[in-house]
Design a protein around this nucleic acid. Structure first.
Lengths: 71, 71
DNA sequence: GGTTTTAGTATAGCACGCTTTACATATCGT
DNA sequence: ACGATATGTAAAGCGTGCTATACTAAAACC
């Protein structure tokens, strides 16, 4: 699943460390989310969305990866 | 974190098994979510929200459990 | 040029989301 | 009363979200 964390962060000139602290995770976690190493938990997704004043759906991009179709 | 899965399900007279199949998890998973044993992953939360035609924020209730306050 | 800040990689370890299987109980239709 | 449907509990096992620590490297600032 893709997300707009890095983009939003850069828009607002916030460092990974600042965001990490604001949502109470480590910087490693932010890096891993931004680089797509894994997905956020629902709780963390909520905290991040709230921090950016957006909804979860605004920030996390669900690309219907779970479709049956194999193009 | 609380959620309205059971409520929405009952409103629409859908069984746990039906919902489970619709979002491609086991019935156990639905039971565990409804009974608060654990939280959905972001992807599953999205599938459930989509299934009910709602947003994640509509269904999953984030009660600011992460406040500092210890009443 | 040296220091600080920011971003990145790597890895071990723990907790939790989800599966699988098996069994228990309640409700409902007949 | 019996079988079917729906809800629930329990426990072992796997993958992954997140932590912690340590180290590398680029950009920025003086």
């Amino acid at each position: 699943m893709d997300n707009r964390i890095a983009a939003l962060r850069k828009e607002r000139r916030i460092s990974q460390a600042e965001l990490a602290e604001a949502v109470a995770v480590t910087r490693q976690t932010i890096i891993s989310l931004e680089s797509g190493r894994y997905n956020a938990s629902l709780l963390l997704a909520h905290k991040i969305a709230k921090y950016f004043g957006a909804t979860i759906e605004d920030i996390f991009l669900f690309e219907e990866e779970d479709h049956e179709a194999q193009l």
